[in-house]
Design a protein around this nucleic acid. Structure first.
Length: 601
RNA sequence: GCGCCCGUAGCUCAGCCGGAUAGAGCGACGGCCUUCUAAGCCGUUGGUCGCAGGUUCGAUUCCUGCCGGGCGUGCCA
């Protein structure tokens, strides 16, 4: 067996960095109640019940409810209600800093009410913390996120939209949680199309091509090359020879190839900037990077006998995958003609990320159609002994972008839609909407706001629904300011800033929770950390979006029912603090999704 | 054929490690601006949770089988 680097065990000792500014206690009442109920359950039934989930959730009959008693009936051999009573008997409400009241209802539900003093205290602590009370992850790890991956010398289009947006949101959120995030832009920078592209480049002359590519006319360049390839046999022949020259490392050819890569990267950078995405040129690690590793990898697998020749190709047969005939489905490591496909590159990339980047969690933000391919690659990596616990790879899959006609999103002419056009259209629409309502803003401010709102709309629409489902790209709906949209949240934020402008000089003060809307808002705010954590583990950003919308709704109700400016000084100071915290939470939450907020709109 | 994903209100979507009356927004209808941005708020309307079985005290949630839609299924990436 070929020698492999020692798989490094990641030390799990608590990290110094975890101390920092963040408080070590939990603020979210839901989590506090969870541990309180669990402790009571253990006290009532014994330590073997330490693993039970108290099933605490928000309730419309109280602040929270715990539903564990019903499920525990069988295990404890008691009536559900008796279980509930036994648990409640272990809780001293009088002495509890958080519990106001606990009631058994129906067949054994526990209805939990939280003390206003607890909410006031917890929100005050959140406000005092720059992380708003969200702790760092207990175990920090190195996460490699593969996302965006556009193709060199090709336009970025809707096909790259979701990967770019979702990947970037996850990168931001995991970074916030304290993980070391390594972005990996697996550029499509290699392959047969480069023969014709380089020939075309030679024909045009570098200077002229440079001009075209610099203004983002990638599709024009690509199409021109393609057209020549199809129409001119001599050109096609040259192109094929050029592919060979490229693969054999011909210096002049590589130079031309480099020009294409360089200008494409420059273009991608511009798109990323426009989309306000954190992927940088330095994060690019395209297919070509793995070229030198493919031959040795194939040889290693062949020599070790882990890969075998089948129908002329060198193959791995990952368990659990079958072809039409019910035979094992191969992952082709080396093609019959000696060339390499993407499976080999993907295997090399996994190894690189594990061994050299030292990542323990590999994320692939790639469309759902590739589920089988990635599943095979991951399974192969496991069977090869590369991917061993705690290391793991996850396919962060997502559905297609559809037009309002429910078909794959295309232009009327049937072309793929350029990403920049999409962004521009959204900004334009936002500008119109902003101009209509916030006409007191000067033109420059309005343009800034339109950018923030337009880009936010696109991103939020993508991130707000379950990524695995297809979603309909409908600018009308996305740039709206009602419902579960970025605009709704940005508006809520801007309203708070407006209050601060109007009440300049008035100091926020101690928080007191009195009104129903204040209570609802406080509880909503304190659920932030839990929402962030949910995304960290499920990689489903829509959980954060749904949370933020709930928070936004809670804030807006508060805003309507609890006037600030004209309230008594103490009440005013308290509400000002609460509004401030709500706004900060919205801002931070949206920032984790890659969305900014305007101060006015 | 086989495999994976999806199917919740007219529309766009949440909810789904089983739990008390399935939630939002849009639409429709009706209220609320001399008071911090009404891009908002409050209310009414609207659902056999694709269908049929099964497990369970209890299923939109888990299992099986259908139906409908999408995608994939050996040398493109």
């Amino acid at each position: 067996m070929a020698p492999r680097p020692e798989r490094r065990r990641r030390p799990r000792a608590p990290k110094e960095a975890n101390r920092g500014t963040t408080m070590s206690f939990v603020l979210d009442p839901l989590l506090v109640l969870e541990s309180l109920v669990r402790t009571a359950t253990v006290a009532a039934f014994g330590p073997e019940y330490a693993d039970v989930d108290p099933l605490v959730k928000r309730s419309d009959r109280a602040d929270f409810q715990a539903d564990l008693a019903l499920g525990l009936a069988k295990r404890t051999k008691k009536a559900p209600r008796a279980v509930a009573e036994a648990i409640v008997a272990q809780i001293d409400v009088e002495k509890s800093p958080i519990l106001e009241k606990i009631e058994i209802a129906g067949p054994g539900f526990l209805n939990l009410s939280v003390r206003a003093s607890y909410l006031a205290d917890a929100t005050a602590r959140a406000l005092a913390d720059e992380r708003l009370g969200v702790p760092f992850a207990d175990e920090k790890e190195t996460v490699a996120i593969d996302y965006s991956h556009p193709n060199v010398a090709k336009e970025m289009h809707v096909g790259h939209l979701r990967s770019t947006i979702i990947g970037d949101a996850l990168a931001r959120l995991l970074t916030f949680r304290g993980h070391e995030v390594i972005r990996q832009n697996h550029l499509g920078d290699w392959g047969t199309p480069f023969g014709m592209l380089i020939e075309h480049l030679e024909d045009e002359g570098v200077a002229k091509a440079e001009d075209e590519l610099a203004v983002g006319e990638l599709s024009g360049f690509y199409k021109a090359a393609r057209a020549k390839f199809d129409a001119d046999p001599a050109f096609a022949d040259r192109s094929r020879k050029r592919v060979v020259a490229l693969q054999s490392g011909d210096a002049k050819t590589l130079e031309a190839w480099n020009v294409l890569v360089r200008f494409s990267k420059k273009y991608f950078e511009a798109v990323y900037e426009k989309l306000d995405v954190t992927m940088r040129p330095a994060d690019a690690c395209g297919e070509s990077f793995y070229n030198p590793r493919l031959v040795p990898l194939a040889e290693e697998l062949e020599k070790s006998g882990k890969a075998v020749i089948s129908e002329g190709a060198l193959c791995l047969f990952p368990e659990g995958f079958k072809n039409k005939e019910g035979n094992p489905l191969p992952l082709i490591v080396r093609k019959g003609d000696g060339g390499f496909g993407y499976a080999t590159t993907d295997l090399a990339a996994i190894r690189y990320r594990l061994d050299e980047l030292k990542a323990t969690r590999l994320l692939y933000v790639v469309g759902a159609p590739q589920a089988q391919h990635l599943g095979m690659v991951f399974q192969a990596a496991k069977q090869l002994g590369w991917l061993v616990s705690p290391n793991r790879a996850e396919h962060v899959q997502f559905g297609s972008v559809l037009g309002t006609d429910k078909k794959m999103f295309k232009t009327r002419a049937g072309d793929t839609v350029r990403l920049v056009d999409l962004i521009d259209a959204s900004i334009e629409r936002a500008e119109a909407a902003v101009g209509e309502k916030a006409n007191t803003l000067d033109a420059a401010t309005r343009a800034e706001v339109a950018k923030i709102v337009g880009v936010g709309a696109i991103k939020y629409a993508d991130l707000a629904s379950d990524r695995v489902k297809d979603y309909v790209f409908d600018l009308e709906r996305m740039v709206a300011f009602d419902g579960n949209t970025a605009g709704y949240l940005q508006y809520a934020y801007a309203r708070v800033q407006s209050i601060f402008r109007k009440l300049e000089g008035v100091e926020p003060g101690a928080i007191r929770i009195v009104e129903k809307e204040e209570r609802t808002l406080a509880i909503a705010i304190l659920g932030f950390g839990n929402a962030v954590r949910a995304v960290e583990s499920t990689l489903e950003p829509h959980k954060l979006a749904t949370y933020l919308n709930t928070l936004g709704v809670a804030f807006t109700s508060f805003y309507e029912k609890c006037p600030i400016r004209d309230a008594e000084p103490e009440v005013r100071a308290s509400r000002l603090s609460l509004a401030d915290l709500a706004a900060k939470t919205i801002k931070l939450g949206l920032s984790l999704l890659g969305i900014q907020v305007p101060d006015q709109m």
